[in-house]
Design a protein around this nucleic acid. Structure first.
Length: 200
DNA sequence: TGTTGGATCAACT
DNA sequence: GTTGATCCAACAC
């Protein structure tokens, strides 16, 4: 057997079909990859939040099934992208089994590939903080409602384990919500300059 | 260095 | 009619 360097592994369905808090924590340090029109964009996740089922008042599914949150009720391993505040999109990855509506909001990432393309989507971009916030991340990656419900085990949008291991992962409250604030269901990589503005 | 309000729309009351 | 898992420019100190 030849000595092999660790290979890049696309996260499979099984990764997502687990308790949401475990998935959220394990997503820190993984790579988000999006392939569009011959371009390949990627970024390493540094900040996420868990939204866990209808018992979580901050979860979009708390009030029941609607057209918007429908994909959260499906199987884990799909994208849930919604429009908010009239101008921003937010990317979530759906977790757990079909019928249990839960997801992990991707809040912040460090751009790795396609940085110039990401920069071109902002009016001002004098640094690489192009995905330090859920709205900015979607803008940098050009993710909109059209990417809602994509299979994350497919070829367009997926997550990879490139064997990066965060030195330290910390917990925080979830940001921008009014209900369920007492839950420490935010996870972020300690010391990263790419966590969203509000945590700094 | 900190606070405020505009942009702008889907979902809900 | 109001609110919301946001961001950034413009102002006040």
């Amino acid at each position: 057997m030849p000595t092999m360097s660790p290979s890049v592994i696309k996260l499979d369905r099984g990764f997502y079909l687990r308790p949401t808090l475990e998935v959220a924590r394990d997503l820190i340090g993984k790579y988000l990859v999006y392939r569009e029109k011959g371009n390949s964009l990627s970024a390493r996740l540094v900040e996420v939040e868990a939204y866990v089922g209808q018992g979580d008042p901050a979860c979009h599914a708390a009030a029941g099934r609607t057209g918007r949150n429908e994909v959260m009720f499906g199987s884990g391993g799909f994208s849930y992208i919604y429009f908010i505040y009239g101008m921003y999109y937010c990317l979530n990855v759906v977790t757990e089994d079909e019928g249990f509506p839960a997801a992990v909001l991707i809040r912040g990432a460090e751009p790795v590939e396609g940085i110039e393309i990401m920069k071109s989507r902002f009016k001002y971009s004098d640094n690489n903080r192009l995905a330090d916030g859920p709205g900015k991340l979607c803008k940098a990656f050009h993710l909109t409602q059209r990417q809602n419900g994509l299979d994350l085990t497919g070829v367009k949008l997926y997550l990879e384990d490139r064997h990066y291991r965060p030195v330290k992962i910390e917990r925080s409250q979830r940001i921008g919500i009014k209900k369920g604030v007492e839950k420490n269901w935010g996870f972020f990589e300690a010391g990263s300059p790419f966590v969203s503005i509000k945590l700094k």
